[in-house]
Design a protein around this nucleic acid. Sequence first.
DNA 1: AATGAATGAGGTTTCATTCAT
DNA 2: CATGAATGAAACCTCATTCAT
Lengths: 212, 212, 212, 212
Amino acid sequence: METGKMNEKQIQIVDAAEHLFAEKGFHGTSVRDIAEKAQVNLAMISYYFGSKDQLLEAMFEYKSNLMATQLEVLVHQSNSEPLEIIYSLIEHYIDKVLQQQPFHKIMVREQVVPSTSRVQELILGMRKRNLEIIHRVVTKGQVEGRFKKEIDFPLLMTTMFGAVNNMVTTQYYYRALSNLEHLSDEEFKQVIREKLYKHLKEIFKSTLTNEA
Amino acid sequence: METGKMNEKQIQIVDAAEHLFAEKGFHGTSVRDIAEKAQVNLAMISYYFGSKDQLLEAMFEYKSNLMATQLEVLVHQSNSEPLEIIYSLIEHYIDKVLQQQPFHKIMVREQVVPSTSRVQELILGMRKRNLEIIHRVVTKGQVEGRFKKEIDFPLLMTTMFGAVNNMVTTQYYYRALSNLEHLSDEEFKQVIREKLYKHLKEIFKSTLTNEA
Amino acid sequence: METGKMNEKQIQIVDAAEHLFAEKGFHGTSVRDIAEKAQVNLAMISYYFGSKDQLLEAMFEYKSNLMATQLEVLVHQSNSEPLEIIYSLIEHYIDKVLQQQPFHKIMVREQVVPSTSRVQELILGMRKRNLEIIHRVVTKGQVEGRFKKEIDFPLLMTTMFGAVNNMVTTQYYYRALSNLEHLSDEEFKQVIREKLYKHLKEIFKSTLTNEA
Amino acid sequence: METGKMNEKQIQIVDAAEHLFAEKGFHGTSVRDIAEKAQVNLAMISYYFGSKDQLLEAMFEYKSNLMATQLEVLVHQSNSEPLEIIYSLIEHYIDKVLQQQPFHKIMVREQVVPSTSRVQELILGMRKRNLEIIHRVVTKGQVEGRFKKEIDFPLLMTTMFGAVNNMVTTQYYYRALSNLEHLSDEEFKQVIREKLYKHLKEIFKSTLTNEA
DNA sequence: AATGAATGAGGTTTCATTCAT
DNA sequence: CATGAATGAAACCTCATTCAT
């Protein structure tokens, strides 16, 4: 399945699958469910994607391509301070996740298993790419003397990924515990976006620099 | 299923299920798999737990009780500074998660869906309990003038839960990215324990206090 | 399983089974249901009766003995006219069925299959005995010149059995169609008892004799 | 399941199920048995009917429609005497039952329980329809002064249903008791058809009219 | 290119029964 | 004598996939 070569029906299917996998998990979703939600003939899924597994793979190929595009641009465009670049990367990541919530829920579930499937390869690839990009910026900051010398990037990334993913996957709890049930979904999304911006920036700042 | 009233066979089953659910997900695991792994007759699972769903519930009841015990003790025993108490709570939480890794992987998966099942109730309950405990300590710190006045507890908790859970569920990636494959599982566990201790303490410190 | 040698627990079981078989059929009832209704340990059913099948057999032995007792007496005691004897036999049969409704419902279900099980043997035996008794009376009536010469007893019996059984098994429909829902169960029972008395006597009279 | 829209495979299944349910009862028959007898894949039964219960329902919808067709015609076509119309209705009913013996055996079993399932609804519907039709004819006879004024239709119907059903379900006994084992099945069917014709006509005549 | 029909495999659960005590 | 624990067999159903058209 070559990326970007999906026709309308295929996208319908992937979209339906995305929401269902996010909600009920891969195994908890039947191809029948997907066909129904996508308003597509049951056999079309095998016809287009070969199998349910391959549908998931295609989805990851498709989505990971959609996501990994502009990071490079972000880094190179800005000539500002390393911390500012980091900030914009953080914002970018949070935005992406909040835009692609269902897909991230799927990732949270599927990354649990360290199997060597195509899907895990893709996740690892995404992680690596993200890590390298931020690594370069951080190194730059270190060279410039603005960042600490000893920094555990993977751990910092884990913190960011973990905090954001946890917020997305457990927003229901967060909403209840913060008494934000009166907000619309969109308003609530804005609230957590801003909160995550601020919070993660502070964490990165205090972890990377010596400033308070 | 009353908690703490499990016999040996029941514990065998729950243990087997725990590992399989963690690895392959709830729907990805068949009761046959569980019976096989637990070396128990297939029908015994229904016999003891009624159904696969109820087995999961029983597991959550059982485990959540195992986990929620000593937090209170920790808080009340120590008469030291609020930050020290917080630190010990953080350590305690990290220890628990690292000890109960399979169970936490299950939680990560199952907490995704905001349904109103018994399981989600239990997760919410655990979260609430944890939140209240830390809330009290933080409030104490605020009253004593040691902590900032404006603190978003749920967000801070989300960060801790997220970072730790993400580390646990994606340790495979972390290990690869940090070039720690040469360590034994146990050594690696020690490493991330210490890293998480330090890292989260710093985050809490910088978030709660005005110190660097 | 010798008849009449049942202890209290066994009778409890048979009673429970009787009602459940009547309501849900033999196969539709599980031994668990029976044990529960009889408030008896599950294993006791196999223990006392050997198997579910044998429980049914024991029930039939027990019940058929209970039922077949006084018919002979009825015939011999009365020296009155044949038609009067027939009448009292009809009444006796109707009374028995109305008293033993659950058991008759079971019979209606179980007599459907012409297998050669012990149960069907018992049903056939009961039928034969009943037939012989009425046959003797009818023959007497014929000899005395009061009854027609050509009479199809089995058909007449079938009519009686069929009408009464159908009334018992479908009393729900009859009650609805006759607008008798306002009556209590006991009152309704009295009503259909009297109706069946009268109706069947008329049928027997017009079938057996030349009178209007 | 829309009536009359069954394809060949579906009819195969329903036919197989009909015979098995008649012989062994609904619960005594497994879907495996049905699939085997219908020479059809096991999964097709769920595929076409959803479940075993729904298969029974579909069967009842299908059969009850097959049966309820020409009664009206019978009544309206004949301009003859009420009693003659009644006679033709009786014959029609007996013919139907003898043609559809397996289905009637199922009805006898299933009508026992006064639950509010779809199946019982359908049985009640059939009964009501039949009752209304004969009711109109009887009323006509009463208006014309040919029939008695006080007649219990439901009871008379019960007698007819009961006698015919009992004959069908217990024909094995009847055959043995009447020494008709030497006849072929078809011959035996003819015999009981004629016997039931004659017998039920006499019963209706003597019940409805004042003639001998 | 697209699909309605069909299916083999495997899912969970319930069953009647037995066994050790 | 009685029973809680255990089990093999079979129940019904759903699954992902394929095939003929």
